[in-house]
């Protein structure tokens, strides 16, 4: 028993010496708290630049102009900011926003909160919007980006810009410059990445702007489908409008992807 206690005491002494040296023998440096999450460099951004960023997102990453254009698929947004106060008191409004900024943000993530008359999903009597939630899916704007677009809409709509430049937004994933992207492996992936579903009903997507593609293989041959992707205006299906589909998919896709898509679509019967 005595030996046992000696061993215990020796162990504790050794550990105590090590701990004591670490606590008192060397200086204690208090490390910095973790940095605030990496940002798009918003800290140094002026409101003008922030609005410009919003415009860029509106025309680019946000894919807004796909529908919000002068072809009547979705309302034009030029003056929307000025119209908001009226909409907030409209009996058809179902959201919870109390000011312009909140309304606009809400309209991005819950588009059905207010549907402009005549722009709702078919058969829903303007209660459900065909617009996707831009914070999810393939568009996936983050909070800072949404705010930038709101700032742009407020500015271009002639309303007062109330948005504050956020300081704690996650960093924008940088586009890898110059490096070719890896090719899409499956048609589903290509559909998701290229945003086909925003307009077409295809795969798991439910777009209604363009023709339903779920049975397209039974209606069209491969040559037609290939042309429809490369030059969308060459032949417009009845009931749909010209210039709706971006004409540059041919430039966005690799040849192997184009063929994969054509094969995939031709197989949908």
């Amino acid at each position: 028993m005595r030996q046992f206690l000696m061993v215990v005491a020796f162990t504790l002494l050794t550990v105590g010496l090590f701990a004591g040296y670490s606590n008192f023998g060397i200086p204690q440096i208090e490390p910095a708290q973790p940095p605030k999450q990496e940002k798009i460099d918003l800290g140094a951004m002026t409101m003008d630049k922030f609005i410009a960023l919003g415009e860029k997102i509106f025309n680019g990453k946000g894919t807004c102009t796909l529908c919000h254009n002068n072809l009547g698929r979705a309302p034009m947004l030029g003056g929307t900011a000025g119209l908001v106060p009226k909409r907030l008191v409209d009996p058809r409004y179902k959201g919870e926003a109390t000011n312009v900024e909140e309304y606009l943000i809400e309209s991005f993530v819950k588009p059905s909160a207010f549907v402009v008359a005549g722009f709702g999903k078919k058969g829903t009597n303007d209660t459900v919007s065909p617009m996707p939630d831009v914070s999810a899916g393939s568009i996936r704007l983050n909070d800072a980006e949404i705010k930038a677009v709101v700032a742009y809409l407020q500015d271009s709509g002639g309303a007062e810009v109330t948005v504050k430049i956020p300081t704690d937004a996650p960093e924008q994933t940088e586009q890898t410059e110059g490096e070719p992207r890896a090719p899409f492996e499956t048609p589903e992936q290509a559909i998701a990445e290229l945003g086909c579903g925003a307009c077409h009903k295809v795969a798991t997507e439910e777009g209604e702007v363009g023709p339903d593609l779920t049975k397209i293989g039974g209606l069209r041959d491969k040559a037609y489908l290939r042309q429809a992707i490369l030059d969308p205006n060459a032949d417009i299906t009845e009931g749909f409008e010209k210039d709706q589909m971006p004409p540059d998919y041919g430039a966005q896709m690799y040849a192997q992807e184009l063929e994969m898509m054509v094969d995939y679509l031709a197989g949908l019967k």
Binding site: P27, I29, P35, E38, D41
Partner: peptide
């Protein structure tokens, strides 16, 4: 009090200089 400076602190991954990252 005795001061201890870490003479070569670890650098951040990215810094902002001359208005760019």
């Amino acid at each position: 009090p005795v001061e201890l400076r870490s003479i070569h602190p670890a650098p951040p991954t990215a810094i902002k200089v001359y208005g760019k990252r």
